[in-house]
Structures are given as structure tokens and as C-alpha cells.
Design a protein around this nucleic acid. Structure first.
Ligand SMILES: Nc1nc2c(ncn2[C@H]2C[C@H](O)[C@@H](COP(=O)(O)OP(=O)(O)OP(=O)(O)O)O2)c(=O)[nH]1
Ligand SMILES: [Mg+2]
Ligand SMILES: [Mg+2]
Ligand SMILES: [Zn+2]
Length: 581
DNA sequence: GCCGTTTTCGGCCCGACTGTTTTCAGTCG
């Protein structure tokens, strides 16, 4: 059972307890535990009971539930709750404006236990007479059902960024003296986001009216003087918050989140006799204002170093800020090269020279051209002879271009049995080899893990590409045991890739952090298939930052010669010396 | 249900907007 499956059960327990109107703090405890499980790079199912209880938010009871879940596939507590409420009622919670109280009422008084039944009831007037459900609410329910059917779920963060900047541009037009910031999970650089959050600071009396008239608005969810929400087309909910400039720091902090990070900061303020909200930090006794103009001052007032947004996930950042041990996070400008890209030789759109010039223009001083190998027939993958011919071509182009060095590489498929798709003597003649899985995704954890470990035995494999194969919002990672992969990578000196493609971001932030902690070097790559794609490195860097990664953890921050020395093929170790001719 | 430079018991973040509430509960951020 993987972490997400465990977290799912814990979240369902929380939802069911909430419908049953249980103690809100117990409910929160289950949600916190679910969040801790989701965020763990380690496989929770493999942890011993004491190790489990080490995780903040997991105590005696929940550790027991998790163990039961892992050992038997289910847990009685969860089953008992499900016996009380049919699983369909949980869907109702996802409707905008429907919460646990309403669900309890709907099920308790009308036995409504699915979205379809709710729709029928609302249409047929069967909700009339229920306390708190008037005609307006009835209409809202029908709208929410329609929207849920059309667009449920989250968005890739980079896609939402585009929409968000469009909205900000629109708002700026009429409020030139107001500052706008994109906040929430977007500012934290999360893989996916549930909505778009925008903070406005200034005196802008017409702002909200203007906001709800944005041409893409499908429905106004709420409109007040300081806060409004709309649904834009394609399911982009957008929240806008307005505060006076003096509160910008506190409002940025609040609206950037995460929620758990906010609660921790507010609790910290409380323990010191203060109160923290989106307007500032205040003395609890007399309301004296202590901070709030800037985020820096706010964190400082709480005796904390300023915490970069990407770290505000309650993954240890508060302690680190307290102790002054926050990492110096990698930045995009730290990257000197890009070690994964494709050209017209396989499935890329631009040729080697065009890619090289674009890379140079993007400020990179070296790149590796890594087209596909033969197994990827769909992408025109190269066999040994073609790969070597392509390498010669790359070196010819390299000789003609100044200011950027080209490495001749390959993204070599790892076949289902763990054999590499190209022979060793071919791989040996290249400058860099990425090995990746592109087939047979349904293998068991044992098969998949042994497959990749076997590929890593080859001394010419320098990097494992997109190590888990996940496609965000579309495909689960294949069943690879990431911690065994990390251990093997550490042993062989193989680097693990953080693939920057927005639907991959693979390794994930949590796994990248775990890999680094266990002595593995990382590579942040664009996997570019055209010249436009170098900009995507930004998202790989975001993932790295969320994983507490510093420049020194990443090979392609090194100057070229140091990078070459850092690649597995030239590292000295028990697997032998470099193999340069 | 979790947790502890204030605690092993007694706390647990704080505020905006909506609808039908006759004074505020529910939902959401
Ligand atoms: N103090 C406090 N702040 C909250 C709460 N809920 C949300 N916030 C703050 C922190 C969030 O990052 C921010 C935006 O809320 P969202 O619901 O949009 O969450 P966020 O953007 O983090 O994630 P998302 O990708 O939208 O699901 O508002 C809360 O219950 N308490
Ligand atoms: Mg959000
Ligand atoms: Mg939001
Ligand atoms: Zn690939």
C-alpha cells in the first residue's frame, strides 16, 4: 500500500468523522496525519511502529490504524464509519458550498447518498423545508453539481500561472496604484494547484466589481469588499483578497500558506501572548501592532528567519528557521547546463544546432543532446550505429559553435528485463548516458525495481531519467521502490534526475530531498523537445527548492570539467576507473 | 487525536462571505 492510498483512508476517516459531527480536533488530527503521510518521501508501509510515531502528527492511535491498514489492507475503524455512511456521501463534500453539516442533514433526513440523488431531490423540490436550505441554496446546489461534473479537480501549476498572470494584467489595467501578487500554492511552487489565489494591496474601491466582470467568469461564488471568488472557464476558481498596503506582509504570509504553516505560526504567536492574522501581528492584550508591513519583519518578529515560500509546507521549516539552519536554496541562475534534451534526430522539433544556439541564448554554457534509443520506435529511437553517427554530428556542430559546449549523449531505454537498449561499447563512446523506463509500466514493485537496479549496474549509466514515471493528474508513478533506487544510486554514484516537464516534475520534491539526504547527486533537466522548452527548467528548480535542495547537490550547477568528473563514468570507486580512451 | 522552554492535561488559528439565522451557522480561505 503506497503513501497516497494510506493518506486517502485517513482523509476519508476525517471526512466521515466530520459528517458525524465529532470532535473537530480529532478530525484535524486525521487530516494532519494524512498530510504527513502524503509528504513523506519514505514509504510509510515499510516503517516500524516507532519510526512511524516519530513522524509529527502521527501518534499512538493513528500509527495503529496505519499498521492495521498496511498489514490487512483495511482498518476496522474506517470500515465501521463506512458502514454508517455509504461511500457516495463523500462525493457530496466535493461540491462547492456543501459541507459536512449539509451532508449530514441530506443523508439524515432524506437518505441522499449520491450526487445524482441530490440533483433529483433539488430538481424535484424535495429539499424544501430542510432547515437552512432555501430556494437560493437549491439553485446553488444545482450549479455546483454541474460544475463538479464539468471540471472536478486540480490543475498543473504552470498552466494556472498563465491564467493567473492574465487575470493580474486585467486587474492592473484599472488599478494602476495597487500591487498584485500571485500567492497560495502557486507561489509555493506546488506540482498542482486547486485554484488561483491573488493578493491585491492598495485602496481600490472598484477592484472587486471589476474582478467579477472578467470576461472568463462563469459564476461569482462570492463578492465582498475585501475578498471575492469567481469560477473562470475551464474550472479555474480564482480568489482575490484586498488589503491596505500596511498589511501587505501579513497578508502575503497568510495567503501564501500553506494552511498548516499558517496554523503553526499563529500558534507560535499565541504562545507569546500575540495574535497573528492577515492584517498583522498584534499584542493580544491591547491590540498593539507589532509587525505586518513585510513578510521579513513578520517572521523576524516571531524569531524566525525568513522562510522561502517553497518551504512553507510544515516539513521542518519552522524549526530550521528558529535555529538559523534553513538551506540556501538553489536558484535558476545556478544552473550552468542542461543534460537532457531531444532533437529532430528523434522526437524533438528542432535540430542540434538550433537547440545549441537557443541554449546559449538562455545562458547555458553546456548541454547534452540525449535523443531516444531504438526501443522507442514511435519516437524514431536510434540504434547503435545511428546513435554513434548522431554523436559524430553533435561533435561536428559543437566544433562550429562558440560559447556553449555540446555533450553527445543518449536517453537509453531500460528494457523490461533491465537490459539497456544499446550495447555497452556504444554507450562507452558517448559523453553521458541517461537511462529511462518508457515501457512495461505495469510491472510489480519487485520487477520494476530490479529492472532499474540492473540497468544501473552498467558503468556507463550516469543518470536515471524521470525515475518514477509519474504523469501528474494522469498516471500514477510506476511501482518502483524509490528508496531502493536511491540506495543503489548512492552506491554506484549514479545521479537521479529532476525532470522539469510540468506534467512530470520527477523526482518529486520529497523524493529529491530524501535522495540528497542519502548522498545522491541530482541533475535538473529540461527534457526539452524544442527551443522553447528551456524555460521549463524553472519548474524543475521549483521542485528542487521544495525539496530543500541547494546548488551543491545538483551536478549541472558545476562548471563543465567538474561536471564531467562528477558523472558516474569518470568517478573513481569500487566499480572501476573511468573508461576514457 | 496529538503534543509539551507554559503543560502528561488541557489546550488546539483566525477571519470573510452567504443565506434565512430573528442573532448566526455553515462553508470556505
Ligand atoms: N490561517 C488559515 N489560512 C488558511 C486556511 N485555509 C487557507 N488558508 C490560507 C493558506 C492557503 O495557502 C491560502 C489559500 O488557500 P487555498 O485553499 O487556495 O490553498 P492553497 O492555495 O494553499 O492550495 P490549493 O492548491 O489551492 O489547494 O489561504 C485556514 O484554515 N487558516
Ligand atoms: Mg489555492
Ligand atoms: Mg484559494
Ligand atoms: Zn524519457
Amino acid at each position: 500500500m503506497d503513501n497516497l492510498a494510506i493518506a486517502h483512508v485517513l482523509n476519508e476517516i476525517a471526512d466521515l468523522l466530520e459528517i458525524r459531527d465529532e470532535n473537530p480536533f480529532r478530525i484535524r488530527a486525521y487530516r494532519n496525519a494524512a498530510s504527513a503521510v502524503t509528504d513523506s518521501g519514505e514509504r510509510i508501509a515499510d516503517l516500524t511502529d516507532p519510526a512511524l510515531r516519530q513522524i509529527p502528527g502521527i501518534g499512538k492511535d493513528i500509527a495503529g490504524r496505519i499498521r492495521e491498514l498496511v498489514e490487512s489492507g483495511q482498518c476496522r475503524y474506517h470500515q465501521e464509519l463506512l458502514a454508517e455512511f455509504p461511500p457516495g456521501v463523500l462525493d457530496l463534500l466535493h461540491l462547492q458550498g456543501i459541507g459536512p453539516k449539509t451532508v449530514a442533514l441530506l443523508y439524515g433526513s432524506r437518505r441522499i447518498q449520491s450526487v445524482d440523488e441530490l440533483e433529483q431531490a433539488a430538481r424535484g423540490g424535495a429539499l424544501r423545508g430542510l432547515r437552512g436550505l432555501g430556494p437560493k441554496k437549491e439553485q446553488l446546489i444545482l450549479k455546483a453539481i454541474d460544475e463538479w461534473r464539468r471540471h472536478a479537480g486540480r490543475h498543473l501549476t504552470p498552466d494556472a500561472w498563465e491564467v493567473a498572470t492574465g487575470v493580474v494584467d486585467y486587474l492592473r489595467d484599472t488599478s494602476p496604484h495597487t500591487t498584485f501578487d500571485i500567492v497560495g500554492s502557486l507561489r509555493r511552487g506546488a506540482d498542482t494547484c486547486g485554484d488561483i489565489d491573488i493578493l491585491a494591496c492598495g485602496a481600490a474601491p472598484d477592484l472587486m466589481a471589476h474582478f467579477v466582470r472578467h470576461p472568463h467568469v462563469e459564476r461569482v461564488l462570492g463578492q465582498g469588499d475585501t475578498k471575492s471568488s469567481v469560477r473562470l472557464r475551464k474550472g479555474y476558481q480564482t480568489d482575490l483578497r484586498l488589503v491596505v498596503p500596511e498589511s501587505r506582509g501579513a497578508a502575503l504570509q497568510y495567503f501564501t500558506g500553506s494552511k498548516l504553516h499558517n496554523i503553526e505560526l499563529r500558534d507560535r504567536a499565541l504562545r507569546r501572548g500575540w495574535k497573528l492574522n492577515e492584517y498583522g501581528l498584534f499584542q493580544a492584550s491591547d491590540g498593539t501592532r507589532l509587525a505586518g508591513d513585510t513578510e521579513e519583519a513578520l517572521y523576524a518578529a516571531l524569531d524566525l528567519a525568513h522562510i522561502p515560500p517553497e518551504l512553507r509546507e510544515m516539513r521542518g521549516e519552522i524549526d530550521a528557521a528558529k535555529e538559523g539552519t534553513l538551506p540556501r536554496l538553489i536558484e535558476l541562475s545556478d544552473l550552468r547546463g542542461d543534460l537532457h534534451m531531444h532533437t529532430t534526430a528523434t522526437d524533438g522539433r528542432d535540430d542540434v544546432e538550433t537547440m545549441a544556439r537557443a541554449a546559449k541564448a538562455a545562458g547555458l554554457s553546456y548541454i547534452a543532446i540525449t535523443d531516444h534509443s531504438q526501443a522507442l520506435a514511435m519516437a524514431n529511437g536510434l540504434d547503435e550505429a545511428q546513435a554513434l553517427a548522431h554523436a559524430r554530428r553533435i561533435r561536428e556542430v559543437a566544433a562550429q559553435i562558440e560559447g556553449v559546449t555540446l555533450l553527445a549523449g543518449i536517453e537509453c531505454d531500460i528494457r523490461p528485463d533491465g537490459q539497456l537498449d544499446l550495447a555497452d561499447d556504444c554507450l562507452a563512446q558517448l559523453d553521458i548516458v541517461i537511462a529511462s523506463v518508457h515501457s512495461a509500466f505495469n510491472q510489480s514493485p519487485e520487477e520494476m525495481t530490479n529492472r532499474v537496479l540492473r540497468a544501473m549496474e552498467c558503468r556507463y549509466v550516469d543518470v536515471i531519467g524521470h525515475p518514477t514515471g509519474r504523469l501528474l493528474l494522469r498516471r500514477d508513478p510506476y511501482a518502483i521502490h524509490v528508496e531502493r533506487l536511491i540506495a543503489a544510486a548512492a552506491q554506484h554514484g549514479v545521479a537521479l534526475e529532476i525532470n522539469s516537464l510540468i506534467e512530470r516534475r520527477d523526482l518529486s520534491d520529497a523524493h529529491a530531498r530524501l535522495a540528497r539526504d542519502r548522498g545522491v547527486k541530482l541533475v535538473i533537466s529540461s527534457d526539452a523537445h524544442s527551443v522553447r522548452a528551456f524555460g521549463g527548467l524553472r519548474w524543475g528548480v521549483m521542485t528542487a527548492r521544495r525539496g530543500w535542495i541547494e546548488a551543491k547537490d545538483v551536478l549541472n550547477t558545476l562548471p563543465l570539467e567538474a561536471l564531467r568528473r562528477g558523472l558516474r563514468r569518470s568517478r573513481k570507486g569500487k566499480r572501476g576507473k573511468g573508461v576514457k580512451a
